[in-house]
């Protein structure tokens, strides 16, 4: 399934957009570095709408007390309990095996297009 989501200009870098791909609510993301991603717009935990959460840089730390932003890695943070998902893989930051369905998103002729992803995990 393939669908036009919006004009490319409607989704600036660093923002996200809630949309439907067929029956599925999805959230389309353009990260600060210009990459496009799409994941299912429903938290695996309690069903919070991720599009109402925050798109942020992933934060890591190697030692107690150390916080550093991971360059080029962005997460969607659920507006409810704050579960964090890597926008690229759909995986939670606390458990690689728990993943949102991801969608292929790209820019074509000035439009943003989303498509079901053959590689998507359930």
């Amino acid at each position: 399934m393939r669908q036009v989501i919006c004009n490319a200009a409607d989704l600036p870098a660093g923002e996200m957009l809630a949309a439907n791909l067929g029956p599925m609510p999805i959230v389309v993301v353009r990260t600060e570095d210009g990459q496009l991603y799409g994941v299912l717009d429903k938290c695996l935990h309690m069903g919070g709408r991720l599009s109402k959460g925050r798109l942020q840089r992933a934060v890591d730390g190697r030692e107690c007390g150390e916080y550093h932003e991971e360059s080029g890695r962005f997460v969607l943070k659920c507006p409810w309990h704050g579960y964090e998902y890597d926008v690229r893989t759909g995986a939670t930051l606390f458990d690689e095996s728990r993943r949102l369905t991801t969608f292929a998103v790209r820019e074509e002729n000035g439009q943003i297009v989303a498509e079901t992803n053959g590689r998507a995990s359930a």
Binding site: D10, L11, G14, E15, M16, L17, A18, A19, N20, R49, S51, K52, G53, R54, L55, Q56
Partner: peptide
């Protein structure tokens, strides 16, 4: 980074 919500009510 604000969400642009196009959320069907």
């Amino acid at each position: 980074m604000t969400a642009i919500t196009v959320d069907p009510a």
